[in-house]
Amino acid sequence: MSAAPGPATPVPVVAPAPPAGRFKAAGNALEIRDVSVYYGDVHAVKNVSLDIPTRAIVAMIGPSGCGKSTLLRSLNRMNDLVVSARVEGQVLFRGENLIGRGVDPVEVRRRIGMVFQKPNPFPKSIYDNVAFGPRINGMPGDMDEIVETSLRQAALWEEVKHRLRESALGLSGGQQQRLCIARALAVKPEILLLDEPASALDPIATAKIEELLKELQREYTIVIVTHNMQQAARVSDLTAFMYLGRLMEYNVTDDIFTNPRVRETEDYITGRFG
């Protein structure tokens, strides 16, 4: 399929728009149109078109090197930080192309937050970690309140409310990751991107993150890259399968994991790849 920019229409095999179902009324938070990413001569993401419905949790799965993290990073201009990277196509957010020249990447990253695989709190206090974004963005309002709200949203408040001034590095891995989510939420984004957010965590901490994502879905649109298929099956509403830089299949998660339409998807999720 040659994915041209424009309204995404469902195509049997590679469907940029999933069956709308309950997400139809909410519209799309992001519309990815014919996005390609190059690292030098390497064409890492190939003409991907995909709609991310508002307040959906969308999982991106695929083998290592399939381009899913690269695609995720192009959604909030993180690839700008990679010297050899070049992004083509459109990522439409409220009708505006985020990849466009006139767009300020810092503003994009405030509206579209990101959490990484390894928890990366700043070597500062728990409070200062959460307050960091609002401060540099000059956000108005009571900082104590912003910090508390963000920590509550990240389901961390009860565990840290008596030690806000202690170093964030003293928290457990799972707590650090929720702190990073709180830090991302503090600047009031609309979309949250997560790149393998639980792969360095134990099963209990992982379960907490997954519960948290379900909670956050009430207010945020979430895109999560994961290698853990059970995790994708548990938390996401829609799943996109990528392979060799291409979007192979995009559908309702239940369908992807019980009845994938594309041979490559089936081979990947049943562990028969290669």
Partner: peptide
């Protein structure tokens, strides 16, 4: 094995 797709079915 946490089987998926055709294996699960």
């Amino acid at each position: 094995q946490q089987p998926m797709a055709r294996d699960l079915r």
